[in-house]
Design a protein around this nucleic acid. Structure first.
Lengths: 230, 230
DNA sequence: ACTACCATACTACCATACAAGTATGGTAGT
DNA sequence: ACTACCATACTTGTATGGTAGTATGGTAGT
C-alpha cells in the first residue's frame, strides 16, 4: 500500500470550512451567531452537503454548537477552557524554549530575527492585525526550530477559544509594544543559551496575555459562556 | 441566547463514528486497512451520508486518510507524531503532577488508591486489556483532581497514534508489573508532597512507555509510515 | 513476452429529495 | 385578556441518484 500525494485541489467542503473558520476566529462571526446550512449553502452557491460536513468539522473543533433540529450557533467562549488552554500553552512553550536554548538551527534563528524586525515596524505603525499575525509566527518559528511543529499545531488547535479571546483583547487596545520588548528579550536569551532567563521570560510573557478575562467578559458579555449554563 | 441541553439521543453519524473509532484504536481495523462509504453503510445498514460524515470526523483526528476518488484508509502510525505526542504528554503530566503535590482533593485521592488496588489484581491475573484501561484511568484521575480534565482530553485526542502504538506493545507482551510499581511510587510521592521525587518518577514512567518504537516497527512493518513517504 | 490502450468497475464528491423534530404566530375557545 | 391548540415555516438528519476521477484487468498491437 502506497499513499501518493493527494491532488490538494481544494474541495468544496474544504473551501467552506476554511472560510467559516477564518470568519469565526476573526470574530466576523461573533460567538452566539446563528447559522444555518441552507443560508450558508446559498451564500457559497453550493449544496447543503459540503456545508453540513464543514459544520461537523467545526463542531468537532468546538467552534460551532449543533443543536439537532433547532439550529447551529457559533460557540460561546468558555473561560474555563481558555484557562486550561493557557495552562497547556505555558507548559509546552516553556519546555520548547528550553530545547531552543540548548540548540537552535541558525537558519530558523535568522527567520525569527527577521520576524522581530517586522514586529518593530508594525508596532510603530500601530498595525494591530499584522502584529497579531507576527506574534503567532514568532512563536510558531520557535517550535519549528525545535522540531516540534506538530506540537505547535496542537496548541493552535486547542487555543481556538483562547485566540478569540486574544482577538477581543486586540480590539480592546492591547499593549503591543510591551509584547514586542518581551519577544526581543526572549530572542536574546536563546542566543545567550540562558535557559533560566528564557524560562522566566516566557512564563511572564504568557501569563500577561491572560490577565483580564473578567474585564473582557464585562465588555462583551454576550460572547461568553456563563459558568452556570452548560 | 440560551443553550438547553441537547437530546443526546445518539444520531446515526455518532453511532458509526464511535464504532469505527473504537475499532481503529483497538486495532481491529489495522493501519492501512481500506474502507469505503458503501461498504460501511451496508455493514451498519444506514445510508452513505452519516458514514461519510463520520469519515470526515475521523480524518480530522488523523485516524483516516481520505484520498478523493480513490479510497479511504486507516492511517498508518507516524513515529514522528508519536514522539511529539509523547513529548507533549510528558510536559503536561509533569506539570500536573507538580500541582498534585501542592494540593490534591481527598476524594480524588481515594479514587486513585482504589484504582491502584485494581491494578494490582489485574497484574496478578495478567489481564492486559483491563490493565490498559486502569492505566488510562489512573492518569486521568490525576488530571481531574487538579482541575485539568480538558487538558487530559486533549492529551487523549492527541495521543491516538501513541495509543495504537501502546496497544501494539500490549500485544507484544508488556511489563505491566513494572508499570504498576511505578504508579505506586507516584502515589506515594503525591501523598508526601514530594514535588522533586514526583517529577523524577513521572519523567521515568513516561519515557519507559516509548522505548522500543523501532522494535515494534520490525514486528509490524506494514502498520507504520516510512519516514520517506510524504 | 511485452507494452500501450481502453472498457469496466470501482472510489469519493456533490446535489437533491424527503423525513423528523422544533420554534413561532395566529386563532378559537374560555 | 388569557390560554390551549394547531398550521406553518423553519431547523438539522438521512437517503439516494448522478458526476468525475482513479485503479484494474483484459486485449490488441508490437
Amino acid at each position: 500500500m502506497v499513499f501518493v500525494k493527494p491532488p490538494q485541489s481544494a474541495s468544496t467542503r474544504e473551501v467552506v470550512y476554511s472560510a467559516l473558520r477564518e470568519q469565526i476566529l476573526q470574530l466576523e462571526l461573533p460567538p452566539g451567531t446563528g447559522l444555518s446550512e441552507k443560508e450558508i449553502s446559498l451564500q457559497f452557491n453550493v449544496s447543503r452537503t459540503p456545508v453540513r460536513e464543514s459544520f461537523v468539522q467545526l463542531a468537532q473543533e468546538g467552534l460551532l454548537e449543533i443543536l439537532p433540529q433547532r439550529g447551529t450557533y457559533v460557540s460561546l467562549i468558555d473561560n474555563s477552557l481558555v484557562e486550561e488552554a493557557r495552562f497547556m500553552r505555558e507548559q509546552l512553550e516553556r519546555a520548547v524554549i528550553q530545547l531552543a536554548c540548548e540548540s537552535f538551527p541558525e537558519e530558523q534563528f535568522i527567520k525569527i530575527k527577521s520576524n522581530l524586525a517586522l514586529q518593530k515596524l508594525s508596532v510603530a505603525k500601530q498595525d494591530d492585525k499584522k502584529m497579531f499575525e507576527l506574534d503567532e509566527e514568532f512563536h510558531r518559528a520557535i517550535f519549528e526550530g525545535c522540531g516540534k511543529s506538530y506540537t505547535w499545531g496542537v496548541i493552535q488547535h486547542v487555543n481556538v477559544h483562547l485566540n478569540r479571546s486574544r482577538m477581543l483583547r486586540l480590539a480592546a487596545d492591547h499593549n503591543w509594544s510591551h509584547i514586542y520588548s518581551q519577544h526581543e528579550q526572549i530572542v536574546a536569551a536563546i542566543e545567550a543559551h540562558d535557559s533560566a532567563e528564557a524560562d522566566r521570560l516566557m512564563k511572564n510573557h504568557l501569563n500577561l496575555t491572560v490577565t483580564d478575562q473578567s474585564l473582557l467578559k464585562e465588555k462583551f458579555p454576550t460572547y461568553f459562556k456563563t459558568p452556570s449554563s452548560n
